[in-house]
Amino acid sequence: MRTHADIARACFQAYADGDRAALDAVLAADLHFTSPLDNGVDLNTCLEIGWPKQANIVRFRFVRVVEHGATVLLTDAQTRSDGSVGRSTEVLTIRDGRIHAVEVYFGWLVPIRRRRACISRRDDQTARCRPMLRFPKEKGRANGAPSSALKRSQLQPTRNLSVSSRPLFSRM
């Protein structure tokens, strides 16, 4: 018998392989998909939006997979066809061998490790080396920094008393 974690991994593998039949075998007809961009969309809408994007995914590497009852918490690193690597964390609810709910939290790129950069001193010719990190270049961003990064000046305190009395931060 497959565990819930096995079902979650099978879903990601089917997506990376472009195997729609295998994907349909693990997704429930009453699936609800929620992400920062989509709020509780149904199975058809989820596939309409997400399935064409699978062609850009080369593979998934699982950073963590935690199974707790009917819930699987999964953090993955997706390698894309352009060489960039993104991470997301997903909370999957699984019943009767199928995924019924998906919550996705995403938005960051994983830096690519480059060769070591050495800084040498002329007087004694010693060198200090440290690894250089860079982000994959995004369209319209010359320095390659993630476009979702916010500056401190773009944040303003707000209050949301229904959740907590502590100040939260949001975009201006």
Rank of each mutant, 00 (worst) to 15 (best):
R87N: 08
I7F: 02
D82K: 00
R141C: 13
R9N: 11
R159C: 06
R9K: 14
Y105F: 13
A16H: 00
L74M: 15
I49Q: 05
M172T: 14
T45M: 03
E48A: 09
R122W: 12
R2P: 15
V58Y: 07
V41T: 04
F12S: 04
N39P: 00
I7M: 06
V65T: 15
G144R: 03
I119L: 14
T45H: 04
R152D: 10
W108Y: 10
V163T: 08
C118N: 14
S165Y: 04
G86R: 04
D38P: 00
G86V: 07
A127K: 12
C46N: 03
V110A: 01
D19T: 02
T93W: 01
D124L: 13
L92R: 06
T126R: 14
K139T: 14
V63H: 13
N143R: 04
I49T: 05
N56H: 07
L109C: 07
R115P: 07
E48Y: 01
H32T: 12
Q13Y: 03
I94W: 01
R171H: 07
V66K: 12
D19G: 02
N160Y: 10
A5P: 01
W108T: 11
R128T: 15
V91N: 06
A149P: 00
F169Y: 11
V163F: 04
N56E: 08
R152I: 13
A8Y: 00
R114T: 13
R159E: 10
V104P: 01
V58I: 14
R134F: 05
T126D: 13
P136D: 06
L155V: 03
V65G: 10
S170T: 15
L37D: 05
M132C: 12
H68F: 15
S147A: 12
V102Y: 08
T93F: 01
Q78D: 13
D38C: 05
Q54N: 13
I49A: 06
R115L: 05
C11Q: 09
L37N: 05
I94Y: 01
Q154P: 06
H4I: 07
Q154N: 09
T126G: 10
L37W: 00
D76E: 15
Y15T: 04
A117V: 11
I119A: 15
R134G: 11
N39W: 00
T34C: 03
K139C: 11
H4Y: 07
D124A: 14
R80N: 13
